[in-house]
């Protein structure tokens, strides 16, 4: 077990990502953040705050629960159905650039489900992906546009992201 990112490292990564977003998109016009539940949501909110500090403009933020779009749900006896949490996207996503935010990018299936969900909500101009950690082992042709840190792992290992809003502290731990 190893802490591969401490609180300081997490916030510096997010700050860097905020700058990258601004640079790449030349500002925050028609841009919105959607965090994937659960830990993508506080990350999205932090990014929105940082972008506001940098530009003075409010960036709309929403949260997305992708449980109903998972492709593994009905397939094997995963046991009880996963609990569904709320999706709240209180704005139109049509013609906007949507930044999908998640904590860990692994096989890519979560992101695929999120893309399906988003498209049911409207027709964004474009979608870009922000992740705090990319741990490799993609099973679908999906890549992140903004990465906090690349952490190569094996399948046996697991990556735990903890955030102050949900877990009391910021850190990224690799187990196994």
């Amino acid at each position: 077990m190893a802490i591969v990112m401490d609180a300081d490292r997490v916030s510096r990564s997010l700050a860097r990502i905020a700058h990258e977003i601004l640079e790449r998109n030349r500002g925050v016009e028609n841009l919105a953040l959607v965090g994937i539940r659960a830990r993508g949501v506080p990350l999205a909110e932090r990014l929105a705050a940082m972008l506001r500090d940098l530009t003075g403009a409010e960036v709309q933020t929403g949260s997305l629960d992708i449980t109903l779009y998972r492709d593994d749900l009905m397939r094997h006896a995963v046991g009880p159905q996963p609990v569904i949490r709320r999706t709240e996207i209180p704005f139109s996503i049509d013609d906007k650039l949507i930044l999908l935010v998640d904590d860990v990018l692994y096989t890519g299936r979560t992101i695929r489900a999120a893309l399906d969900a988003l498209i049911d909500f409207g027709r964004p101009r474009a979608i870009q992906l922000v992740v705090l950690v990319d741990r490799g082992h993609r099973e679908l042709p999906i890549r992140a546009d903004y990465v906090g840190r690349n952490i190569p792992t094996s399948h046996q290992q697991s990556v735990q992201v903890r955030l102050a809003e949900l877990d009391g502290r910021d850190e990224v731990e690799v187990e196994g």
């Binding site: 109903l68 749900l73 009905m74 006896a77 009880p80 159905q81």
Partner: peptide, 10 residues
């Protein structure tokens, strides 16, 4: 429906 439909061998 969702809660009763889970999994193949539930």
């Amino acid at each position: 429906l969702y809660l009763l439909a889970g999994g193949e061998d539930s």
